[in-house]
Write a protein that binds this DNA or RNA. Structure first.
Lengths: 344, 344
DNA sequence: TTGAAAGCGCTAACAT
DNA sequence: ATGTTAGCGCTTTCAA
């Protein structure tokens, strides 16, 4: 209401609004003296451009949206670093929205992104029903990260969840586990089902029987991990190894094992998915499948920016590799396993 | 370009744009049959309002910004939950920006917030020089959270850092520590200096001498905590107790202590600031000062929304209490201290 | 109760 | 090289 507009600058500098606009947008053909005068006026008046107006006129923004399924998960916050670096190099800014694994919240943020005409959006879908069409219908490019939508043909960046889960399962089998339990992820997400499928493939390749009782979902949340682990421990034939399908659930699992007085790997071997910043990798020494989180963010953003710039190409599926990092929690029988007991 | 505007709806429904606008904004005085027709057309055409245009006209948005100083810090992500709940109840959406403790990044997000004309902004300032004037000059309400700006009179929500740090220090003294080290926070933040001051006050009250060598800054980051702890351990007279001024640094400290083969509380008593989601409180059993993160987010947002709605009142300083939660890492001499050694 | 018209701040086509 | 003008999509007086 009472702030400086491009008109004010123009009047004060004694030029037309168009000239001010040109200077501000780096248009070459403006006389040096005028440019000088405009710039001086801009800073003396403290002029700040109004993006809403600019965007409305240009029909384009330089803001990228990231709709995250759970902001308390370090996987995403670490990924965001990669997004921000890639975006800021290209002159875009990034705003985040937290869907909190709630399809309704997610929907409302998709609507915000559409209504705000964001230049492009990165989504980690909370379900298979995620309404990305709200964006694509408006020609707003979308790239899915981490998870993807089977029903929609879109660019995506993921890790090879199937292989990683199979590796983890095989590793447990190699350590001598015969009954490997799975604390599974959220049903209705591709990560959840790929890791489940990889687990099954691992069992098969190891020649171990599949026991459905050994599979319990923890919904990718800490509390879910806790409950799922309790259920598994209370089984008539409890597992001798555990593969936990994400980092948050691993926290819940560790806590439950401690509660039950079970030690890993001695009483039960343990492999998690995703590091927890450096935390899980620390003194807890949990074997985990490590994802290249920063890289995921960068690659997804690079892809998104190409779409934003109007490039047209068949949809790309970038699949990065996740690596099993073996630490103490899964190493059985080795004399090193209990070599360095953490302080009480 | 090729999407549905209010004009299209108007034309198709056989009314004027003004009428469509009225229906969409819940204006009473529209004939029921027209309202009916408009609504039907809106959904059949798949019309979505363009916020940029609306905001430009109204000179107001319903988006709140949160500029976070470090998104990988669970303190902030947990706080954001409170922000989102309070905002969505009031019909506002929330976008986050990560300043990453970098004043330049922070500045660029302040500019984004101003240019996007956000309704209000929550800021946790990265330094004392944070340019909130970019917002306040445009009459965009700002509330600072966690940290505040001494040079600017603004609403703020913080915890009583001085008292909390004093309590932590006194607790260590009571456990028999005579040389209490401080892994201090970022200089140039109020949290950093309040916790430092509280530490000094605690020493004084405990009758312990102040030794400047025992104070090393870790800049609120994991790596900083690691380095600061190393420096403290290498002192000619190393500390027998450690107060670490935030959660990320506590991770670094724990790691360094482990590396050095030092056990806590046996070799050195340890108190951290902020829980790390539930992680630090888990089997690591670190004594911490716990902040009411969710509450901080809620209260700050409630305050911000009152300003957004135009309420005028003297600037409020809400100070919440942080509580010392005593766990094993600081309890010396007690027989319980090493009762439950975590599994290797 | 409804419509016509103006204008939010900016940019871009057109004119000079 | 610079200015004039129109208009992005929407809301809101004002008039009818």
């Amino acid at each position: 209401m009472s702030y400086v507009t491009i008109r004010d600058v123009a009047r004060t500098a004694g030029v037309s609004p168009a000239t001010v606009s040109r200077v501000l947008n780096g248009d070459d053909r403006v006389a040096p003296d005028l440019r000088e005068r405009v710039l001086a006026t801009v800073s003396s008046l403290g002029y700040r451009p109004n993006h809403q107006a600019r965007n409305l006129r240009r029909q384009a923004t330089t803001v990228l949206g990231v709709i995250i399924s759970d902001i308390t998960n370090p996987f995403f916050t670490s990924m965001v670093r990669g997004v921000e670096d890639a975006a800021s190099e290209a002159g875009y800014s990034v705003v985040l929205a937290n869907a909190d694994e709630d399809p309704e919240k997610e929907l409302s943020y998709l609507e915000v992104a559409a209504a705000e005409q964001m230049a492009g959006v990165l989504v980690s879908p909370a379900s298979h029903e995620t309404r990305v069409d709200l964006l694509t219908d408006r020609n707003i490019p979308v790239v899915t990260v981490d998870r993807w939508l089977p029903a929609v043909e879109l660019d995506r960046v993921t890790v090879d969840n199937h292989r990683a889960a199979k590796d983890a399962t095989l590793h447990l089998a190699e350590q001598g586990c015969r009954r490997i339990g799975l604390v599974a992820g959220r049903p209705g997400t591709t990560t959840g089902s790929s890791r489940l499928a990889g687990y099954k493939a691992g069992l098969e390749q190891a020649g171990l029987p599949l026991d459905e009782n050994l599979i319990v979902s923890g919904g990718f949340r800490i509390e879910g991990g806790r409950e799922a682990t309790r259920r598994l421990l209370n089984l008539p034939h409890p597992p001798d190894g555990l593969f936990v399908a994400n980092n948050l659930m691993t926290i819940g699992t560790i806590d439950t094992l401690d509660e039950a007085g079970l030690r890993y790997p001695d009483d039960i071997a343990l492999v998690g998915f995703d590091d927890m910043a450096p935390i899980l990798g620390l003194r807890s020494a949990i074997t985990t499948v490590r994802q290249p989180t920063y890289e995921i963010g960068r690659r997804a953003t690079d892809l998104l920016l190409r779409r934003v710039r109007g490039e047209d190409f068949p949809s790309r599926h970038i699949v990065l590799q996740a690596e099993l990092t073996v630490r103490q929690s899964s190493q059985r029988g080795g004399k090193d396993a209990a070599a360095e007991p953490p302080p009480a």
